[in-house]
Design a protein around this nucleic acid. Structure first.
Lengths: 137, 137
DNA sequence: GTCCTTGCAAATGCTTTGCACGCTG
DNA sequence: CAGCGTGCAAAGCATTTGCAAGGAC
């Protein structure tokens, strides 16, 4: 498991059942889980886990680069496992659905803007909001 | 003033000195002000204005499409006056500077993704984080 | 055995809301 | 002069933190 290897490599960090659980939930999460939802799912497997543990686990994963945080809408944050650096979001205003997409052009924007501004890009986030097919665009 | 016209056109909304002040601050703000900073600046002109009034004014402006909200980093929201739909942000991890940029390619991404997914885009937000020239890329 | 991690509860900080008064249109 | 907007204070909610007990290595 990637988590295990990464945690073990990182000095001063330990693998625990809670972290494995939280990471598993985020990985399977199919995308864009809020902390509250991660917590709710975690409690189904381990009713004694606490919300602070969830937050601290997420914090550790972000620090290790395993999980990315996105800021969809004004509500709370969402988290997802990092697979590659180029995943972005369509958020439906009608039904709240979050659709993930990849697009190579995005990387080009990122590169060219970076070059023009002397700016070294570490991460990119792009959110388009609007209406999905069901909600009639 | 655009604010005045828009407010007056909108039924059930009134123009007040506080709203004019808040809108002026956001417009001149040179970009990316948090609610707290808008509040601080507003108090210099009108020490009796309250933070809730600032939030309510911003809420009204968002509703009228005069102001856009962006979600930079995990901290609080930032606001800026809407001039066109294609302004995006570089956020420096080192010094916290926010650099605004426009890029036509972005619109293309937006259009093509929208077409491919049957998704009608209403607004787009893109944040690149990394290091600016000063903070050494 | 060390010291990182957990659970609980309390604290924090941004944002929102209830209510009585004030001011716009 | 009706009804929206304001100011104040208190509430709400996601997230963070302190501390003692538990568990990984």
């Amino acid at each position: 498991m990637k988590l295990n290897k990464t945690i073990l490599k990182s000095p001063g960090s330990r693998m625990t059942s809670q972290r494995a659980l939280v990471f598993d939930i985020i990985s399977r999460g199919g995308g864009h889980l809020g902390a509250d939802e991660i917590y709710a799912r975690a409690r189904r497997k381990n009713p004694r886990i606490s919300l602070s543990t969830v937050y601290r686990a997420i914090g550790k994963f972000k620090e290790l680069g395993l999980v990315a945080e996105s800021h969809l809408g004004q509500e709370h944050h969402h988290y997802e496992a990092v697979h590659n650096g180029n995943h972005f979001h369509l958020v439906c205003i009608g039904c709240g659905a979050v659709i993930e997409f990849e697009y190579p052009l995005v990387k080009r924007v990122q590169d060219e803007v970076a070059r023009a501004g002397g700016f070294k890009v570490v991460s990119a986030e792009m959110n388009l909001s609007g209406y999905c097919r069901q909600c009639g665009g």
